[in-house]
Nucleic acid binder design. Structure first.
Lengths: 191, 191
DNA sequence: GGCAGAAATTGACCTATGGTAAGAAATCTA
DNA sequence: TAGATTTCTTACCATAGGTCAATTTCTGCC
């Protein structure tokens, strides 16, 4: 919990009351590998802050193929934001790729925290803004880079994630097959 | 201008003072076709609200190929948000695809408007949240749909945009070539 | 209304990536 | 630690989509 509070305090001043409130709407949990925290079709009531391990969100298409939207490791937030912001049932699944430690928040209380503690407003705004930037960049990368270039960039930007994931997790995040990833690795090794 | 103020008033109550402030930080303009409003490499000081016509933002890759990040028609906002939120020079170009009418805002004043008029906070927050949702959906579509499916969805979601754009604009938004778009259209017509 | 330049189409060919399947390797589990 | 299971690799072939070039069609503009 202190890891998150410290993160927040880097950005904003936090009164003891606000800190107590954050604690009151959250629970620290250890999640076993393979656990599904948010399931497609269900109402999304939680947002997770990852303090250890690795989680991912993905959708499943009509052929049963999975497409990874996001990974989350230490210090990242994860949930189904499409569902939360649109107030719809989940279209994503959020699962635990390794045993992980998380801080689980009530989604509506976390999203609305600025109503009670306005000091959170710049923190939340900044998170949203950075989220938009990273999504814009991802779209541009997807449009202009080859599979191998996207993989190189992934390794560069998220060197810590690969240790937690299966090949097909990464492939499904980058938009190609696990077989292609295998071939890309062989080509890289030749150089 | 009233078109934007009405849009805002659908979401929040707007005091006369707040309304006056919005007017004070913006200018209505008519922009000729082909005008570049934001140029790669330069500092981004403006955000545009489109009231008529069509604009687009795109990046140019190392081979000179353009990749469209966003279109904006009536009632849409456009700028280089990567540059603004990261406080960096523009990586995108924003150009006018047809003669357009826009309301031009000072970026920093618009972004910071909630400091003076807190009633704007939920409006801005909601815009950011919807922005995140639309980007998530676009990424998932890019990951799971074929070129033809993406084009069909584009027509469904943005039926008004095609009239303003060249084929290569749409192709570069959807992530394929204009020649492919031409072939996709032929296939569609056969059915 | 005709001409010049831009855009779109089309066809031939090419390439990156996908699909399948089998075997090898890694990992889990009893 | 052996056996079972999952994951990864590899080889072969298939295909969506890209590239290039020629042609046709559209659009402005005088």
């Amino acid at each position: 919990m202190h890891i998150l509070l410290n993160k927040i305090k880097e950005k904003i001043a936090l009164s003891p009351e606000a800190e107590a409130y954050v604690r009151s709407i959250s629970t620290e949990k250890t999640i076993p590998k393979g656990t599904v925290l948010i399931r497609e079709g269900q109402t999304v009531r939680k947002i997770y802050f990852v303090t250890g391990g690795c989680m991912r969100s993905f959708c499943t298409d009509s052929h049963g193929k999975e497409h990874t939207l996001q990974f989350a490791i230490k210090n990242w937030w994860i949930s189904d934001y499409i569902a939360i912001y649109n107030d719809e049932p989940a279209t994503l699944t959020v699962e635990c790729l390794t045993e992980s430690t998380v801080i689980e928040f009530q989604a509506n209380e976390l999203i609305g925290i600025h109503a009670q503690f306005p000091e959170f407003e710049p923190y939340q705004r900044n998170n949203l803004e950075r989220h938009v930037v990273s999504l814009h960049k991802r779209i541009l990368n997807q449009l202009q880079l080859t599979a191998a270039q996207r993989y190189d960039l992934f390794l560069e930007q998220y060197p810590d994630i690969e240790q937690y994931t299966r090949n097909y997790h990464i492939a499904s995040y980058l938009g190609f097959t696990q077989e292609s990833l295998s071939r890309i690795r062989v080509e890289k090794a030749k150089k």
